[in-house]
Computed example of a mutant assay.
Amino acid sequence: MGTKFWGYRRPNGDVGCRNHLLILSGTIYANSVCERVANTITGAVPITHHLGRCQTKSDLRQTFWTLVGMGQNPNVGAVVVIDHFREEGCTSEEIAHEIAKTGKPVEIVNIREANGAIEATAQATRKAMYLMREISKQRREEADISELLFGLNCGTSDTTSGLSSNVALGACSDRIYREGGRSILAEFPELMGAEDWLTARCVTPEVAQKFLDYIKQYEERILATGEDIRGSQPTGDNIVGGISTIEEKSLGGAKKGGSQPIQDVLWILEKPKKDPGLYLMYTPGHGSESITAIAAAGSQLLVFSTGGGHTINHPLMPTIKITGNINSWNRMSDTVDLDLSGILAGKVSIEEAGDMIFNEVVEVLNGKLTKCEILKENTGFAIHRIGLSI
């Protein structure tokens, strides 16, 4: 029998490991109202951002589907969408319509139609209160680990990452695959140089070519700005940590995906198929943009491997942070959850470290809070931009 966990079953069959009430801003001008409402309601989580206005059509669609993905995430039990006016293509009604397809309750408030911020705050607070009363009645039900969509990411990587924590995370991902689960590996600029290794694992030549086409497209986007990605990757903190080239960083970063078959290559925000295995997602290396896209695709939990230590945490998707660097653990143990420095010390095998991560994943799925959840370090939400503001 596969590993079980206890989660919140949604009307569409998804299983969440949290039961958040999401207070979702449709536009920058609704942010303050969202934050006031969330600060009033126990258990509410605000998602705010600086977009939703004066964007090109393609960029506005990116914002729209990111916000929809937040509301559709299995860890969300109900949603209040707050809008300022009406930006066609990203209105509160349009956002709520897509989220409601999951079967979860959604309410909307428009600040102008409510006659200003004070009345809008009152209306949204009242709606949020009654939604919270409803979802607070929900109880966890038994679910199988095969229902997990496992997020993989890394940041502030150093020489220990590709030798220890990333490899152990790959072992954990492989175990989830053996039990019928799926994983998402993103950050395309940090896969450049690992193409041969990854394409050899793609289930079909078409999937392999899709990956190569997306890698080429990403590099062309960077070159079109007049810059070369090799001037930004590796990043400054990577270089301080001993990583010398983008290829070295990519070969270490790709280890997070383990050895399982690559089922498909996803566009940013795209939801994967149900087939077990690894899915690659076209996202930037920017950590918050990357994990936001993974959460929008439906991931309930993400493990973030960090060489130098990190505070990143997605507001809706528990973000377990691991490190194989003993110095980083000693400095950042308030926000890093798991010390894997025993790998390089010769005290813990890769397989044992993978099991340590897996056990932590199951505990967090069952309700154990990560350190950054407790501290409300919700630094991990950002929307990837396509075009210029207009």
Rank of each mutant, 00 (worst) to 15 (best):
V81W: 01
G52L: 04
M1C: 10
T225A: 10
K4W: 03
H50M: 11
T125I: 00
V303Y: 12
Y29K: 12
R53M: 10
Y282F: 14
V81E: 04
N115H: 14
C172P: 07
E227A: 11
E147N: 14
I41G: 10
R18N: 08
G236K: 13
I326H: 12
I95T: 08
S328A: 15
I135M: 04
P261C: 10
M356A: 12
F150I: 11
D264H: 05
A200N: 12
S250T: 07
R10G: 00
N39Y: 02
S250L: 05
E270L: 10
D144F: 06
H20R: 12
A128S: 09
I357A: 03
G252I: 02
G236T: 08
H50W: 12
I47L: 12
S32V: 07
N12G: 06
T91Q: 13
Y218D: 08
A117I: 12
N110Y: 07
Q300R: 02
D59S: 05
D213Q: 15
A200G: 07
D228W: 09
Y279H: 05
K273G: 15
K256L: 11
A96G: 01
L148M: 09
R53C: 11
H20T: 02
K210R: 13
G308V: 10
N19S: 07
F211T: 03
G324E: 04
Y279Q: 05
L169K: 04
H310Q: 07
V348A: 00
G242A: 14
D158F: 12
R182T: 05
P205V: 13
T319V: 02
Y130H: 14
Y282W: 03
T42K: 12
G151L: 10
G287M: 10
E94I: 00
T306S: 13
R178Y: 09
Y214Q: 11
H50F: 13
P276L: 09
E142A: 15
T160N: 05
S165W: 09
Y177V: 06
G103S: 05
T156Q: 11
N325S: 08
S305N: 01
H49R: 09
A168N: 05
C54R: 09
E98R: 14
E88H: 02
D337H: 06
G170K: 00
T125D: 10
I82Q: 04
R230M: 12
G236M: 07
D337I: 01
V45S: 02
I23H: 03
I326Y: 09
F5C: 04
E270R: 03
S288A: 15
I291H: 03
R86F: 14
K137E: 13
P11S: 07
M1S: 11
T56I: 04
Q260S: 11
G69M: 01
